[in-house]
Design a protein around this nucleic acid. Structure first.
Lengths: 298, 298
DNA sequence: CCGCCCTGTTGCCTGTCTTGCAACGGGTCA
DNA sequence: TGACCCGTTGCAAGACAGGCAACAGGGCGG
C-alpha cells in the first residue's frame, strides 16, 4: 500500500545491504532511495543506518524500526484479510514453512482442499529445516510452520503437537516386506541403507538413538532429498527411513514401523510466531491442518 | 509522521462525522480529503465509510481499519520512544487519565519527581471518571489510568491494585477532630455533610453501604469538585468524605478514617490497555507510580 | 411544492514533492 | 595507482496533493 512505500524501501535496503542493490531490486534509482532514507532519518531524529564503505547496515535504532515496520505490515495484512472476510468472499494469503517430509502428501492435499473452498486464497509453501522455519516465522516470511523436532524456542506458539513413528521404506518385493508389524532397528542395519543426510531432522533422530547404543551408522547412500531417497528405493533394493506423513500411497512401495523400543517417535508441531495474530485465511488453514493431523494421529 | 497523513485523515473524518468538518479541523479543503479517501478505498478494495446525507460514518470494514490505524500510531510512538532511549536522553510523552482524587497530591508530586529526572518527557493529565478512563485507554487518548473502583473490563490490564480507606475530612477545630482513631459512620451523619455528587465513585461507594443498612443520605452540600468540598470544610463547619490520597497536608485540615465495619476500603488501580505495550517513558512512569502506591499502601 | 442548506464529488489549475540522470567524493582491493 | 564499489548531490522532468469553483443529491422548513 502506498503509505508504506518508504517503509518497504527501508526493509529492502536492510535486506540487500546497500542502496544500489536495493534500488535495482525496487526498480528505482539510488538517488531516490537515499533521499527517502535521509527524510525518514530526519523525521526520526536519528540515523537508522550505518554508512560503511561496503554499503548500509542497520544500527540499533534501525533494528527497532524495522521490527516495527514488519509488525505493521503483518497487522495490515491481517486487517485486510478480516475486511475481505466481511464481504463473504475469503481472500488472503497463507505462507507456510514446512519440513520436506510434508511436501509429498500432507501439504499439497490440504492446500488443494482449502483452495477448493476458497479459490481466492493464495499460498506460499517453502521447505525449511526446523531452525530455518523458526527464522521464517520470526521474520514474517511465514505465517505457519509445520516441522519435525522443533527446537525449543520461546518464539514458537504451537497450534498442534503430536508424534510420528519412523517407518522403514522399501520396495514391495524386498525381503523385509515379507513380514508384517514393527521392525527392529538392528534388522535394518544389515541391509543397504539410503538415508536422509544431516541437514534433515530424521537423520539426527536416528543417529542419537544409535549413539546411545554405541552403534555407528554407515549408510550406503545419503541425500538431502527425501524424494530422491524414495525414488532410489523404487529402483534399487535399498531401504530408507521416513516419517509416515511423507510416504506416498504407491503399490510398489511398502513400509513398516520401527519398533518403539529402538526409536522414539519424532515430535511434530504446527506453530505460529508467539504474540502474532494470524490473518483469517491463515487461521482457517491452520484449523483445517490441525483437524487433519488429529485424524491421522488417532 | 509523513506516511501516516492519510491515515490521520481517516480518523479525523471518523471523529468529525463529515468530510467538511474534518477538512476544517485539518485546515485543508474537502476536495483533497475526498480524494484521499477514494484512493484509500480503492487500495483496500472496499469502501470504509457509509455516505449519508448528514455526512460520513465508518462501516464495519472502516471500524477494523481505524482500529488498525490506532494500533499502528501507538506502536510507532512506542518505537520512537525506545529509539530516543537508545541515545541516553529519555524523551517521550505520557498520557494519564485519573480520578479527581489524585490531582491534588499523588499525580502532581509524581510528575514533578519524574520530570526532575527526565525533563524532556511531556505529560497529559486528564480527569476522568472510571468509565471514561477505560474509554480513554481504549481510544489511545491515555496510556495509563489511575482510578477508583474500576469497572470490570477485559480491556483493563492492572499494573497496581490496592485499597484506600475513606476518611472523614474536617476543620481542625471541628468537634469530631477532638477524638482520634476511626469514626463510625453513624457519628458522621449527625453533622452537616458536604459530599461528592453522583458523578464520583466515592459517592456511589457511600450510598451502597448505607443502602444495605436502609439509611438514606441527606448531604447538606454536594459537588462534583473535591477541591470545592475541601475548601468548604475549611470555611464552614461541615465535614466531607474523601480518599486519603486526595487529602492535602494542611494544618487547618484534620481527617480520621471511617471504621472498617461501616465502609469497605475503595479499590484503587493503575491500569493500561490490555495487549498494548507502553512507550519507555510511560512504562517508567508507571513503575515509579506503582512504587509510590506500594509505599503508601504499607 | 419549492427553495435553502447541508452533504460528497468532480474538472481544472498550481505548487510541492518525488524521481531519474549524470556527476562527484570517498572508500576498498588488486 | 587504477578500477570498482559505495552513498550523495544539482538539476530537470514528472507525479501527486491541494485549492477553487461548480455540480448533484438528500433533509427540512416555509
Amino acid at each position: 500500500m502506498k503509505h508504506l512505500r518508504t517503509l518497504a524501501y527501508v526493509t529492502e535496503i536492510a535486506r540487500a545491504g546497500s542502496i544500489r542493490r536495493a534500488a535495482e531490486r525496487l526498480s528505482i534509482t539510488p538517488s531516490a532511495l537515499t533521499r527517502q532514507i535521509q527524510d525518514l532519518e530526519y523525521e526520526l531524529g536519528t540515523p537508522i543506518f550505518e554508512r560503511l564503505a561496503q554499503g548500509m547496515r542497520l544500527n540499533a535504532a534501525g533494528e527497532l524500526f524495522v521490527r516495527h515496520i514488519r509488525d505493521q505490515m503483518a497487522d495490515l495484512d491481517r486487517v485486510r484479510s478480516q475486511i475481505a472476510d466481511l464481504s463473504g468472499v475469503r481472500r488472503g494469503h497463507v505462507a507456510l514453512a514446512c519440513s520436506q517430509a510434508f511436501v509429498t502428501q500432507v501439504v499439497p492435499e490440504e492446500v488443494e482442499t482449502y483452495r477448493a473452498r476458497f479459490p481466492l486464497v493464495g499460498f506460499t509453501v517453502q521447505v525449511r529445516d526446523h531452525a530455518q522455519a523458526v527464522t521464517a516465522l520470526a521474520t514474517f516470511e511465514a505465517d505457519l510452520a509445520l516441522i519435525l523436532q522443533p527446537p525449543p524456542s520461546a518464539d514458537l506458539h504451537p497450534l498442534y503437537s503430536g508424534h510420528q513413528t519412523l517407518r522403514v521404506l522399501m520396495r514391495s518385493d524386498h525381503a523385509l516386506a515379507a513380514e508384517a508389524g514393527p521392525v527392529r532397528l538392528r534388522d535394518c542395519l544389515g541391509h543397504a541403507l539410503a538415508l536422509p543426510d544431516r541437514s534433515l531432522a530424521i537423520r539426527h533422530h536416528i543417529e542419537q538413538a544409535l549413539a546411545r547404543r554405541g552403534v555407528a551408522l554407515q549408510p550406503t547412500v545419503e541425500s538431502g532429498s527425501l524424494e530422491f531417497l524414495r525414488n532410489l528405493t523404487l529402483r534399487e533394493g535399498v531401504i530408507s527411513l521416513q516419517v509416515p506423513s511423507g510416504i506416498p500411497q504407491d503399490p510398489r512401495l511398502h513400509s513398516r514401523p520401527i519398533d518403539g523400543r529402538d526409536l522414539t517417535p519424532m515430535a511434530l508441531v504446527l506453530a505460529q510466531l508467539r504474540g502474532r495474530s494470524l490473518s483469517v485465511a491463515a487461521a482457517k488453514f491452520a484449523d483445517q491442518l490441525v483437524a487433519r493431523l488429529n485424524r491421522e494421529g488417532s
